[in-house]
Design a protein around this nucleic acid. Structure first.
Length: 389
RNA sequence: GGGUCGGUGCCCGAGUGGUUAAUGGGGGCGGACUGUAAAUCCGCUGGCUCUGCCUACGUUGGUUCAAAUCCAACCCGACCCA
C-alpha cells in the first residue's frame, strides 16, 4: 500500500527497494518532505505528499518536514517559464507559520519522535563561498540545462538567472543536512531529489530513496493544481466553499482524487457519478474540517438550490461595516462579491445578481438602512453568496 | 563594453501620428443548456460619484492641434561580438 497507492515512481530500485528498506531498518527512517512557503496557503495538491508522509509516520517513522524559508527566497525554477518573483523575508516568515498550522490537519504532531520540523535557513543561510563553490562544482552547466524548465527557457530565449541554478543544489543539500533516508516529492521534483542523492553520496552518506507522488490535476482538469492557475482548493478554505468546489470535480478526475486524497477503496465507490462527487466532497471536507461542518456544508449545498432556505455556512456579512444609504453596485463591491463597481454593473446587466431570489435589474437600486438587508441573501452567479447579519 | 532586435491590457499577440479603452486568440466571468461539470451557443472582460469623467501601450522628458505610434535620455530582456 505505502509503496503503491499514490506513488508514481520510487528510485532507485522501485517498490521493492522501499519494501526492503522498511523491512530491514532497525531504527525509524527519516522521511523528508520539503515545502517552500512561497504562498500563504497549502492546497489539496500538497495533500498528496503530506498524506504519504503521514503513512510513514503511522508506520513508526520520522517525518522530517523542511520549511524552505531560504529556498523560497530563490524560487524553485521547476515548471516555470520565467523566474519567480523574489519574496521578501517577511512574506516568507508569515507563510511558513501558516504552513505549519495547515500541516497539523494531516500530520501527526502529537506522538513524540514522529515529527521534526526544520527551516532550511538554519544551515543554508550560513554557507560560505567555499562551501557554495563546492556545491556548484558537483554539477555541470550541461546537467543543469538538461533540466526541464531550464532547457525550455534556454531554447525560448527566456532569461535564466544564475542564482536559479543554486536551487536544486540547495534542496539537495537539505537532504545532507538532515540525513534523509527517504525523500518525498511530486513527479516534477525528480531532478531535485536526484541531486540530493548525489550530494549525500559526496558527503559519505547513504543516498536517500526517492519517492515521487503524482501531481494532482487541478479543477480545470488539465493543469496541475496550483494557486497561480486558480484551479485549486485551499486546505484552510471554509467548509462550504470546499464542499462546493469538490462536488463538481470533473468526472475524469474523480478517481484520482479519491485515490490520492482519501483512503477509500476506489473499487467501492458509488456507481452514480453525482454520488461519487458528493462522497468525495464530504470525505475531504470532513478530513480538513470535521464531520459536523461537512454535514452542514452538504445540507447547505442542497438548500442553496432551493429558495429561501436558511444557510448556516454561507458566508455572513456584518451590516455594521456598511455606510447607508448604499447603491447596489457599492454593496456588491463592499461584500467582495464583485471586484469593482464596474464589475458589479456588468454582472447586473448580465442577469447574474439575485437579491433574496429576485433578479436585480436596476443599477440604481439602493438601500437606505440596515433593516432592509437584515438576513437578506445576495447571490452573484452560481457560486458567490453572502448573507447579511 | 560594442552591435542587432525587442518591451502593448491577466497571458500571448496585432497595431507604426487622428472613429484607439486599443483587432484577434487564450484564460477568466456571466447567461442559456445539462447531471454539478465537460461540450455547445450568446454576452462580458481598466476604473469611477457612469448617457459623462479619469487612467493606460517599459520609465522620464520632448515634438505636434493630436502620439502606443515621431524624437531624446534612461531602465530591462534576447541574440551575436568582445
Amino acid at each position: 500500500m505505502i509503496a503503491t497507492r499514490g506513488v508514481v515512481e520510487i528510485f532507485p530500485g522501485g517498490a521493492t527497494a522501499l519494501k526492503d528498506l522498511l523491512a530491514k531498518t532497525t531504527r525509524p527512517l527519516r522521511v523528508k518532505l520539503g515545502v517552500d512557503p512561497t504562498r500563504p496557503d497549502l492546497h489539496l495538491g500538497h495533500l498528496v505528499a503530506l498524506n504519504k508522509l503521514r503513512q510513514f509516520q503511522d508506520l513508526g517513522h520520522t517525518a522530517v518536514l523542511i520549511i524552505g524559508d531560504f529556498t523560497a527566497l530563490i524560487g524553485d525554477p521547476t515548471g516555470r517559464s520565467e523566474a519567480r518573483p523574489r519574496l521578501t523575508p517577511a512574506e516568507v516568515a508569515t507563510n511558513a507559520a501558516t504552513y505549519l498550522e495547515q500541516a497539523k490537519k494531516v500530520l501527526d504532531f502529537e506522538t513524540p519522535g514522529r515529527l521534526e520540523v526544520h527551516h532550511n535557513s538554519t544551515w543554508l543561510a550560513g554557507l560560505d563561498l567555499g562551501k557554495i563553490t563546492d556545491l556548484l562544482a558537483s554539477m555541470t552547466v550541461q546537467q543543469m540545462l538538461a533540466k526541464e524548465g531550464f532547457r525550455e527557457r534556454y531554447n525560448q530565449q527566456q532569461p535564466i538567472y544564475l542564482h536559479e541554478f543554486l536551487y536544486p543544489l540547495m534542496q539537495g543539500y537539505d537532504s545532507v543536512a538532515i540525513r534523509a533516508d527517504i525523500e518525498l516529492g511530486g513527479t516534477d521534483q525528480k531532478f531535485n531529489l536526484g541531486v540530493g542523492r548525489d550530494l549525500q553520496l559526496r558527503d559519505g552518506q547513504i543516498p536517500q530513496l526517492c519517492l515521487l507522488v503524482p501531481l494532482l490535476v487541478g479543477l480545470d482538469g488539465v493543469k496541475k493544481m496550483s494557486k497561480s492557475s486558480g484551479n485549486y482548493i485551499g486546505i484552510t478554505e471554509p467548509a462550504f466553499a470546499m464542499y462546493q468546489k469538490l462536488q463538481k470535480v470533473p468526472d475524469s478526475l474523480i478517481e484520482s482524487y479519491f485515490s490520492l486524497l482519501t483512503t477509500i477503496d476506489v473499487n467501492q465507490l458509488p456507481s452514480e457519478s453525482r454520488e461519487r462527487q458528493r462522497k468525495l466532497a464530504f470525505t475531504i471536507t470532513e478530513l480538513l474540517h470535521d464531520t459536523q461542518s461537512a454535514d452542514q456544508a452538504a445540507k447547505d449545498g442542497l438548500a442553496l438550490n432551493q429558495a429561501g432556505a436558511k444557510l448556516a455556512t454561507i458566508p455572513e456579512f456584518d451590516l455594521t461595516t456598511i455606510q447607508f444609504p448604499i447603491l447596489i453596485t457599492q454593496l456588491l463591491k463592499a461584500t467582495n462579491l464583485c471586484a469593482t463597481t464596474s464589475d458589479a454593473r456588468r454582472l447586473i446587466q448580465q442577469n447574474a445578481v439575485r437579491f433574496n431570489d429576485g433578479l436585480v435589474t436596476d443599477l440604481n437600486l439602493s438601500f437606505t438602512d440596515a433593516q432592509e438587508l437584515k438576513e437578506a441573501i445576495i447571490r452573484v452567479g452560481k457560486q458567490k453568496v453572502v448573507r447579511f447579519i
